[in-house]
């Protein structure tokens, strides 16, 4: 269970990104965070694993207040939290399996990491993760030879290899085309069904409504909506975005989009 209590975040330039955020997320939820650019979506997600420090408040994950942790204790907590980025953040020159095994570094000492030694079990775990997303055949290919959708799946496999309780996703599909977007979102749903909590930033409101079990609307660093997807009405989006939805904040008719499994140019 994740609990945020009175979380404040002020950037060094004085910009108040989050003010008095209170939040309670149960295990196994699929939470989408929506809001305008600059509203504090990314900041909120990045505060949960302390990629951003917070100035005040508590962030309690499975009973541990992560907001005050430092050094090793923080890293031990972090290895239970996977993270997915908009631009994948893979090492493009390394092969896929090396990228996926990078999810295990939290379980190793610095000395072991120097020589890049992973156990057979870990290698098998990494390959199983790749298999779950249908990219096992690409295990020994360099990451930059893969398409965007495949790279995001490698990132998903990397997060899954951490054996996390929670996966954070910062705009995971913002740089993918609609068909790949649907495929990757389906992958997220599958991860969620394994019992892993997911907290994702979403740019497209209709994607958030279709895939998540709970939606949080954020505006100027404050939570202005928290509820089920079917409660997100035009009135609610009016409150979050300050206006009716633009065309570019929806993907169109999602159910008409055929998800791709193999990318066309491969």
């Amino acid at each position: 269970m994740i609990e945020l209590k009175h979380v404040d975040k002020v950037y060094s330039n004085g910009f108040k990104a989050l003010s008095d955020v209170n939040l309670k997320i149960e295990d196994g939820e699929f939470v989408s965070i929506i809001g305008l650019s600059g509203a504090g979506k990314s900041t909120l997600v990045r505060c949960i694993n302390r990629l951003n420090d917070v100035q005040a408040g508590e962030i309690i994950i499975d009973g541990v207040d992560i907001a005050t942790l430092k050094g090793k204790a923080l890293r031990v907590q972090r290895r239970n939290i996977g993270m997915i980025f908009q631009s994948f953040n893979l090492v493009k020159r390394s092969n896929v399996i090396t990228n996926v095994l990078a999810g295990r570094v939290g379980y190793h000492s610095t000395f072991e990491t120097i020589f890049g030694i992973y156990s057979k079990e870990e290698k098998l775990l990494a390959l199983q993760s790749l298999d779950k997303f249908g990219i096992l055949d690409k295990a020994y290919v360099r990451a930059n030879h893969l398409s965007g959708g495949q790279q995001q799946r490698v990132a998903l496999a990397r997060a899954l290899t951490q054996e996390p309780h929670l996966i954070l996703a910062d705009e995971p599909v913002a740089s993918l085309d609609p068909a790949t977007t649907i495929a990757v979102m389906n992958d997220f749903t599958r991860i969620n069904r394994m019992g892993i909590t997911i907290i994702a930033n979403m740019h497209h409101v209709d994607l958030a409504k279709k895939y998540s079990s709970r939606i949080i609307g954020i505006k100027a660093g404050q939570i202005v909506f928290d509820g089920r997807p079917d409660e997100v009405t035009d009135e609610v989006t009016m409150k979050i975005y300050g206006r009716a939805l633009n065309k570019n904040e929806t993907l169109g008719n999602i159910d008409d989009i055929e998800p791709v499994t193999e990318d066309a140019h491969e």
């Binding site: 399996i97 055949d137 020994y140």
Partner: peptide
């Protein structure tokens, strides 16, 4: 030594992929 960098091989399951590791 370097692995199937062209991605032309296909593996039936993770075990056989493990055996084909570079």
């Amino acid at each position: 030594f370097v692995g199937d960098t062209r991605g032309i091989k296909s593996y039936a399951d993770p075990i056989s992929a493990y055996q084909a590791r570079p």
